[in-house]
Amino acid sequence: MHEIPKTPQGFLDALPHCRALGMLMVSCGDGKAVIDMPYDENLIGDPKTRVVHGGAVSALMDTCCGMAVFFHPDQPDSTATIDLRIDYMRSATPGQTIRAEAVCHQMTRNVAFVRAVAMDEDRARPVATATGAFTVERRLPEESA
């Protein structure tokens, strides 16, 4: 089994899609995560408006939510997305960094519940909001030895 890095930046660096999308760690810990995704012309979804593709925003929010779970004080050994609902409110402003902020607001034995918001530099209105459920996986004591 591949070992998951136990530092927030190590977590991001270990995921090729995060590197490809240019994600940058802002802060992470105590069940909260903040990640920036700088504007990149390679992420444009509409050449006419130059707006970043919604799939890139989705990947940013999914990653941010997963990190909020993984770096929660209850310290799961791994996590994966069960369900993620994203509501797109408006297009991100071309040329601006998009920031995702996620909070793990409830963790049960097997499932974590997360809320997130993505904003561009205007910060006036959300680009998107998300709610999700993520697995909470813990190794059995004999697996840790």
Rank of each mutant, 00 (worst) to 15 (best):
V114N: 01
Q96E: 15
Q9M: 05
G29Y: 04
R19F: 08
A118F: 03
H53G: 12
L24M: 14
H72C: 12
Y39M: 05
P94A: 07
Q106W: 06
P5L: 09
D46L: 02
G10E: 05
M119Q: 04
D62M: 12
P76C: 04
R50C: 13
K6S: 09
M23K: 08
V127F: 02
G29N: 02
R138Q: 04
G95L: 10
F70V: 00
V103P: 00
M89P: 03
V136R: 07
M61F: 06
F113A: 05
A92H: 00
M37H: 14
G54Y: 02
R99D: 13
D46C: 06
I35P: 12
P76M: 09
P76I: 12
P47C: 08
G10M: 06
H17A: 13
L60N: 10
R138S: 01
V69T: 08
H17N: 15
A133S: 12
V51W: 01
Y88W: 03
D120Y: 01
R125H: 10
D13H: 05
P141Y: 13
G66M: 03
C28M: 05
G10I: 06
E101C: 12
D120C: 01
F134W: 14
N110T: 12
P141D: 13
Q96F: 10
V103L: 12
E3N: 14
D87I: 05
G132W: 04
F70K: 00
R139G: 09
E142T: 11
L24E: 15
A92V: 01
D122L: 08
Y88T: 05
R125W: 10
F70P: 00
L15Y: 08
T135W: 01
G29W: 01
M1H: 07
H17Q: 14
V136G: 07
P8T: 11
K32Q: 11
